[in-house]
Simulated assay, not measured.
Amino acid sequence: MTAARTEQAPGTRAPDAPENDVVLRLEDLVVEFPAGGGQTVHAVSGISLEVRRGETLGLVGESGCGKSTTGRAIMQLPRPTGGAVVFEGRDITKLSAAELRETRPKLQMIFQDPISSLNPRRRIPDIVGDPLVVWGRRDERAKVVPEVLTAVGLDPEQVADRRPHQFSGGQCQRVSIARALVLEPEVLICDEPVSALDVSVQAQILNLLEDMKARYGLTLVFIAHDLGVVRNISDRVAVMYLGKICELGETEELFDDPVHPYTRLLVSSIPSMETVTGADIEKADRGRGEMPSPVNPPSGCRFRTRCPLATERCAAEVPEMREVRPGRFAACHYPMLEPVGAGAAVEGA
């Protein structure tokens, strides 16, 4: 860690995570895009997160909340507007193009659409082996490419002369995973890797990611809007709303007893034979509606326009991420600390 980055952003570190166990850290990350009429899209607005080595961190939220933009900002595609992305102690937003290129093999990404992310003119072994060619390791292709194709469940001989259009979506996603793994990265950004796939295929890809995580010692950032998928694969979960992180915690604890009104709203929407009920959920349910535009986000708490607990304070004051329980962080003036189904008691109400 450099001297300029010694101050820890509040509400990001789990109590049992030592400094040397953090492989990736976002510090006040900001991503903005110009819009028509001189306006600005505030896609990501000052989020801070830490990813521990070997874990799977789930990043969830509604479409348009900034999840995928955060993943691309980690990869510097494009570089963020502000803040820092600290990978293994180095702020990669400050690296030169040459230095960033040297770092990129350790950070790989799986994109949402498995078919369009593959070159339709190239054969599968060429697609998977291209990273080795780029890095001057052409001689390793004959050995490494068959190994990684076999690892993701594809027969190297059967795919030798085939192109992406000859495969299903699930098979193309396996090719994408193989391409991401061929350089043996440390961190893998998964941008909704199963959302375009059939449900039966989703399970296969999720199991494959778990197997690859164990086999290659990967750290995963898993971006998705499907809460059921995130619950099954993640160790910790960060909930994102309109460019901000609103809650962060261990997966089971967060899903079983969310404390932020938005998280409770999300959890209550998960299809289940045993629907989450309670006065607090009923209140949150009344707050359903369209997410505001990131061009002109609400003042104060960005969820306040849909929140049943909102007060004048929520409009005037931005809630800071703080630890409301051991290992649980929330950006809310009135976190819902009573267990789900026990009523709507809130802190400070």
Rank of each mutant, 00 (worst) to 15 (best):
L132R: 04
G71S: 08
A310D: 04
V23G: 00
G36D: 14
A35C: 00
F33L: 02
G249P: 13
F329N: 04
A73G: 08
G11W: 04
E147Q: 15
G66H: 10
F329D: 07
D16R: 06
L24T: 11
S45K: 11
V148F: 09
G153L: 11
M291W: 03
L100R: 09
G249K: 05
G278C: 11
A98Y: 02
L209R: 02
G89N: 11
V259S: 12
V23L: 11
L107A: 02
A310V: 03
E99M: 03
E7Y: 07
R306N: 08
Q8H: 01
R322K: 15
H165E: 09
G64C: 05
R313A: 07
E290L: 14
P319C: 06
A151H: 07
E317W: 02
G278P: 11
M75F: 12
L188K: 06
L154A: 06
G61W: 10
L132T: 05
E312V: 12
L29G: 04
P80A: 11
I177A: 04
H42F: 03
F167T: 10
A349K: 10
C65T: 10
S63A: 10
R179H: 12
V60P: 12
L197N: 05
E27M: 03
R162S: 04
T311P: 01
L59V: 15
H260I: 09
L218C: 04
P146D: 12
C314Y: 10
K283D: 14
L227N: 01
G287N: 09
R215E: 14
R90C: 00
F87I: 05
S68D: 06
P146H: 10
G289L: 08
L57S: 02
T12K: 07
A3C: 00
P18V: 07
G36C: 00
T277Y: 05
M321V: 08
G58Q: 05
G278Y: 13
E290D: 14
A35E: 03
L118S: 05
D28S: 14
L242H: 06
E290F: 08
A214H: 14
P271F: 13
K244M: 06
P193V: 09
A98C: 01
A330L: 07
G287D: 12
R79Y: 05
R179L: 07
V22Q: 07
L248R: 00
T219G: 05
P80Q: 13
V51E: 04
T263G: 07
L95Q: 14
L248P: 02
T275G: 01
M336D: 02
A4S: 14
R13A: 13
G37E: 06
D126W: 15
L218F: 08
